[in-house]
Computed example of a mutant assay.
Amino acid sequence: MATILMVYASMTGNTEDMADAIADGVRDAGIDITVKSVVDTNASELTEYDGILFGAYTWGDGELPDEFLDFYEEMDDVNLQGKKAAVFGSCDSSYSQVGAAVDILIEKSKEIGAEVTLEGLKIELSPSADEKETCRDFGKKFAQSL
């Protein structure tokens, strides 16, 4: 059976709400998922899973959150060839680069060999009930891509 690791960062709880709904969608598809805060894991763990979900809010005007920076650098030492990945995050359209952290993590995933199977999911600030359903669908689709 396929295994999935979700690694995310959340400051205000918005990305965490997305992560919870996405994890529910993965479980609804019948796949086990391990969910970890980025500060509680390291990039070498990524190779132990078939699928990887990354979640990050965008900090400032288009940057990864500070707590993601060390992990991001560690990703350079990991080969995700044969692994599938997808990325999500909360964002704020008051900035010129909306949800740039999602785009940064998609590019890094590709650079280190992962197949990114879904378009990045960006939700404005806190997910509404409908957007939480979108997140659950995102999780189901990702699980089905394995």
Rank of each mutant, 00 (worst) to 15 (best):
A85C: 14
T3I: 10
M18V: 06
A43N: 01
V7T: 00
F68T: 04
D40S: 10
M18Q: 13
A143G: 15
C135F: 05
M75V: 07
D77G: 13
M1F: 09
Y72C: 02
I112A: 10
I31F: 10
G82A: 15
S94V: 11
V98H: 10
V39A: 13
S94T: 13
G55L: 01
L125K: 06
V87R: 04
L105S: 02
Y95V: 06
P65R: 03
Y72F: 14
A2E: 13
A9E: 12
A19D: 04
Y8F: 12
D77A: 14
V102D: 01
F71D: 04
E67M: 12
Q97H: 15
F54Y: 07
S126L: 12
L80H: 06
G60L: 01
D24M: 05
D32N: 12
V116M: 00
E131I: 10
T41W: 00
A19S: 02
V26Y: 01
D20I: 15
N14P: 06
V98G: 06
L105F: 09
C91L: 07
D24T: 13
N42D: 15
D92M: 02
S126G: 08
A2H: 12
D130M: 10
Q97D: 15
S90K: 02
G139C: 08
P65D: 11
I4V: 12
T134D: 09
D103V: 06
K132L: 14
D32Q: 11
Q97G: 12
S96M: 13
D137S: 14
I104G: 01
I31L: 12
G82D: 14
